[in-house]
Design a protein around this nucleic acid. Structure first.
Lengths: 259, 259
DNA sequence: GCTTGACCTTGACGCTGCGTCAACCCTCCA
DNA sequence: TGGAGGGTTGACGCAGCGTCAAGGTCAAGC
């Protein structure tokens, strides 16, 4: 007669595992000796080894008792089912590995490489790290909403950066937000450039990137994001309104430009 | 300002997941509105999307906050660690799949194919299903103890089955144990054959398979298994003692054969 | 006969990442 | 004004044990 420790050692499992199998009814509780110890016979050892064999093969404990009683065809069928689960799980993990391989750098987190390239381009024309991060967060929101369309938009956005006025704007914004001046005079300069660019786009009849008309939420979020990242954005929007433009991501000409 | 449901929908997660992230401190609790509802800004949406991106890549939630604050090299290092975990997990599951592929039939459960072949041979010489199952369980115990030596023992065991006396023995035992007669006269016949076989083995100086001398446990278990599967085995052992042999798996000649 | 260490007992929490009630409150629309 | 469809906290459940806690028991050496 074996004690629980001897039984567990023979089958190559832990004592805790054996007790767990008792708890869930997978292995019947044996008789106790005078002092209350569990005493096991050879049959229990055989059962435990069978259980471990199936468990090691990835069979859920809840199915093992059924499996041990099943006939050959039911057994084979159950094995197929379990193997499919295993395959699916492996596939899931391999997908994770592919995802994780994409996450090498900080910028590409939650962003396609095209956007990362755009952000690098932004850096190269003089945008500060703060500005780049703000842009990155904005594109994270956009990517979450239109993951498939993002790639087709990026070439146009990258091209925009070739405009010296755009480069100038980003540099001015970088200076503003890197300092901590409450009412920076350069805000007006930035507003002037932005108004000029808006005029340009309006004249060219350009449809602003991301305009889907039926879904304002992402645009509202982008606006909110800008304000949350720095309250002076609110001041900039005021200045833009004075120049006849409302909005932030999507500029709209006000009905009646002020005198 | 977003409600929790809107936020969750935007990031493509469940409301419950968002609350969970609050609980574990992964996503900061936002302000509440007058009625106690959580109200989220755009920053929260960005954070949540970053969290999901890492979580979908298989990063444990407990490490995500560290990862989001890490610099490029620490980030890369952490990613490597996580990728190693993923690889190990995939390896584990693939090992499971290989194991499970071996479990096609009932006999091969916890047994190498050589033993399954031996059992088939047993069937072919007329052993009943009960006897074969008892043999199988015995071999499960042996395999658990000496998994590597089992293969080298099997050819000898299979060869033994060519002996017509052995075949006769198994058929007699099959008849005995398939019926439910308390004091079967065929028990004596079986004992006669066994004694004869033991004498044969003794004369040939054969070392009984599995004799390791320093480890009695498996043999004791095999003896116990036989008795547990049918109490009439005890009667058989008595009859063997009368014929000058003790033991069951390992027969030993008694010092003084009774008259 | 007493100590010591190894083993046994039950009970309960911890881990991972949420899903899923329960019981109740808030908002919005017809 | 009522009902549908949000939101709130609290709690259990899941798989498969690991790991205390707080003891009782056994075998061996002194």
């Amino acid at each position: 007669m074996l004690t629980i420790g001897q039984l567990a050692a023979y089958a190559g499992v832990t004592v805790r595992a054996v007790r767990h199998y008792h708890q869930i009814g997978l292995l019947p509780e044996p008789e106790r000796d005078a002092s209350g110890y569990r005493r096991y016979g050879a049959t229990a050892a055989v059962s435990l080894i069978k259980i471990r064999t199936l468990a090691d093969a990835g069979v859920p404990l809840s199915q093992i008792s059924r499996l041990l009683e099943a006939d050959a065809s039911a057994f084979a069928e159950a094995i197929r089912t379990i193997d499919n689960h295993l395959r699916a799980e492996i596939e899931r993990l391999e997908t994770s590995r592919r995802h994780i391989a994409q996450l090498t750098a900080g910028d590409s987190l939650a962003l396609p490489p095209e956007v990362a390239a755009y952000l690098d381009r932004l850096r190269s024309i003089g945008a500060s790290e703060r500005i780049v991060e703000a842009e990155r967060d904005g594109w994270i929101l956009v990517t979450a909403r239109w993951p498939d369309r993002i790639v087709e938009w990026m070439p146009g956005k990258v091209a925009e950066l070739d405009d010296p006025k755009v480069a100038r704007l980003y540099r001015v914004l970088s200076e503003i937000f890197d300092d901590d001046v409450e009412d920076d005079p350069r805000l007006a300069e930035a507003a002037d450039i932005m108004a000029c660019l808006a005029e340009q786009a309006y004249a060219a009849g350009e449809v602003i990137v991301g305009e889907e008309a039926d879904d304002d939420l992402p645009h509202d979020l982008l606006d909110a994001l800008a304000v949350e990242s720095d309250p002076r954005v609110e001041r900039l929007r005021e200045l833009m309104r004075e120049r006849g433009w409302s909005g932030w991501n999507r500029m709209e000409r006000l009905a009646e430009p002020p005198a």
